[in-house]
């Protein structure tokens, strides 16, 4: 049987605490036989032992010599998927928020509906695995609204990094992907390129270690930067 190649991209910045548990969980996850799943850890110039920890676990490691931000790190993984002809690339955050078992949910949704991009969402259906703060929910509503204006898509969890890209989306993102806070902005990019984006309900967890990339004071900057990014992506493409 012809297996489809899947690349799990795990962007990491100082995740030595959470990474071993996550990687062994991935190794234990039973993926359907029709997929051949590889794991690549992208180290975004961590100051801790993320690389050593990852190498011990026998996975592919992309070691960036400079800190590029989450988008630049994820894009490096997507480029690897593109160069090595993977059928699907799935982003899985290094802090353990995205349960590896839910990867199967994304793959099944792709198989069933043939979307180009599948987003694992906390807010569609009965996603009750993870509750976030009020401010964060407010932001997420705002981006839902902004996304509807720019793309016409109903995406509720546009900041979710738990995503599957198929070959079309991989080819696009390998060349063109925002480096800072890429999630909502890339949705505009995908929609403008005519890719089909859909979200499915998944269970998420609290982070297992490390800290969020967005602090409270940074959330205003985050919203402004992302709004601008979405607007200009909309104009440009």
């Amino acid at each position: 049987m012809m297996q489809e190649k899947v690349l799990l991209i795990i962007p990491c910045y100082n995740e030595e605490a959470a990474l071993p548990a996550l990687l062994s969980e991935v190794a234990k996850t039973a993926f359907p036989d029709s997929y051949k799943v590889d794991v690549i850890v992208v180290n975004d110039c961590s100051t801790d032992n993320t690389v050593a920890v990852a190498k011990q676990m026998n996975v592919l490691v992309l070691d960036l010599p400079m800190n590029l931000g989450i988008g630049g790190a994820v894009q490096s993984g997507i480029q690897y998927a593109f160069n090595n002809q993977y059928d699907y690339a799935i982003q899985l955050d290094g802090d353990g928020q995205h349960p590896p078992a839910e990867v199967v949910t994304l793959l099944n949704a792709q198989k069933k509906y043939n979307f180009d991009v599948v987003i694992g969402s906390r807010f569609v259906g009965n996603g009750d695995g993870f509750q976030s703060s009020f401010i964060r929910r407010l932001g997420i509503r705002y981006f839902h609204w902004l996304n509807r204006i720019f793309t016409g898509n109903q995406i509720f969890d546009s900041t979710s990094g738990f995503r599957l890209l198929n070959k079309n989306a991989i080819a696009l993102a390998a060349n063109n992907y925002p480096d800072e806070y890429p999630e909502p902005e890339s949705l505009v990019l995908f929609a403008k390129a005519g890719l089909k984006v859909k979200e499915v309900s998944v269970q998420m967890r609290e982070r297992q270690g490390g800290t969020s990339s967005i602090g409270k004071s940074a959330s205003v900057y985050y919203s402004l930067k992302v709004s601008l990014g979405m607007f200009f992506t909309f104009i440009r493409h």
Binding site: V42, L60, V61, L62, D63, L64, P65, M66, L68, G72, Q75, S76, Q79, Y80, N83, D179
Partner: peptide
């Protein structure tokens, strides 16, 4: 340019390994 260079270096390091 720095982003492209960093990514290229990371890919090359992995290829060498």
């Amino acid at each position: 340019n720095i982003r492209k260079l960093s990514q290229e270096i990371a890919h090359l390091k992995l290829a060498i390994e």
